[in-house]
Amino acid sequence: MNLFRLAGDMTHLFSIIVLLLKIHATKSCSGISLKTQELYVIVFLTRYLDLFTRFVSLYNTVMKIVFIGTSFAIVWYMRYHKVVKQTYNKDEDTFKHYFLLLPCFVLALLLHNEFTTMDVLWTFSLYLEAVAILPQLVLLQQSRNIDNLTGNYVFFLGAYRGLYVLNWIYRYFLQDHRARWIPWISGLVQTALYADFFYYYILSWKKHEKLKLPA
């Protein structure tokens, strides 16, 4: 594992910690899209089906369990915690997330490495992860007030896949020279979807102003 991959994983983990901290400490999930969070549960469950059949390293196993566990915890908080659920911006979280599920699944049926249940679902999870942020970005655009923790959460979540792209470049040129098109293309699309957000996030950070996305 190279430093970019580790930095990517840590950034991903950190984004989740920031989100859980916001929810737990402020007892509020305002500005957070439940649809995006539910998509992440599906992403992790379909990607880590191999949790008990394929052992890569203790690090991988622990991280997989953490990602599955925390994604369930976030959804539980937003749906069932009696205080937190009242802060959910239900009327603004309007993105039809099931419209993402079907195309990603069809694409995974068409473009995959091996036609096996495990591999098609793994491929599906990569396609779905690439677009899972869309409901969250739409919600942010509709929010007048984006609090710092929410802004930071989305920033670190986007930065994680960007660091993975650097990891892939490093692996390809300096380690094994193997092309992994499915994660690469998905990861590039995923990172590109954040471009607009990154622009306004960095702008607001430079000007010491509150983050606001143009509608």
Binding site: R54, V56, N60, W122, P183
Partner: peptide
């Protein structure tokens, strides 16, 4: 093997 497809990543 797993490294070939990228399944050794998260």
């Amino acid at each position: 093997d797993d490294g070939f497809s990228g399944k050794d990543e998260l």
